[in-house]
Nucleic acid binder design. Structure first.
Length: 150
DNA sequence: GCCAACGTTGGC
DNA sequence: GCCAACGTTGGC
């Protein structure tokens, strides 16, 4: 059982959107490190859903991984923003996972709260300039964040 | 809108 | 394989 933090811009796709839809294929990740983390994700892993690039950056709630990594269909779609002409169908460059809504936090855990919590200073998301949209979270970090949210 | 950080690209 | 230029991310 692993824990992950996944970023999304709420203008594009928010935690409320996930709650409404139930599940969502996490397409459009075009960063090798983030892709590798998704390839490592297992069904049942827990996901911290982070809102980035918005008025109130922070963690809105929890999701779960509901499908193992599979080829991201948007890489083959010329009409998609995420189209990658260099990716071959028999050797797809990009993968995505499916995430499902799990639980809303009672309290939104804001970035400033994460920053103010000593045990969370090591989180990758805290690193200045970090741009990974998928990052692993340790069990200890997860426990603390869950406490903050409930 | 600014700007620091960092991944990617491409010339050499 | 180096590295400058460029684009993007994301907090502020």
């Amino acid at each position: 059982m692993q824990y992950w933090l996944m970023k999304s811009e709420p203008d594009e796709f928010s935690f409320a959107d996930l709650e409404r839809k139930g599940r969502e294929p996490w397409t459009g990740v075009r960063n090798y490190q983030a892709r590798n983390f998704m390839r490592a994700a297992q069904v049942g892993d827990t996901v911290l859903f982070y809102h980035s690039n918005c008025d109130a950056p922070g963690i809105a709630g929890l999701a779960t991984v509901s499908k193992l990594a599979f080829p991201d269909p948007t890489q083959f779609d010329p009409k998609s923003d995420y189209f990658d002409p260099k990716s071959q169908r028999d050797e797809p460059r990009w993968h995505c996972i499916e995430v499902s809504f799990y639980k809303k936090f009672k309290k939104h855990v804001g970035l400033e709260t994460l920053k103010a919590t000593p045990g969370l200073k090591s989180m990758l998301i805290m690193r200045p300039g970090n741009r990974l949209s998928v990052t692993p979270v340790t069990a200890a970090e997860f426990k603390q964040i869950q406490k903050l949210g409930n």
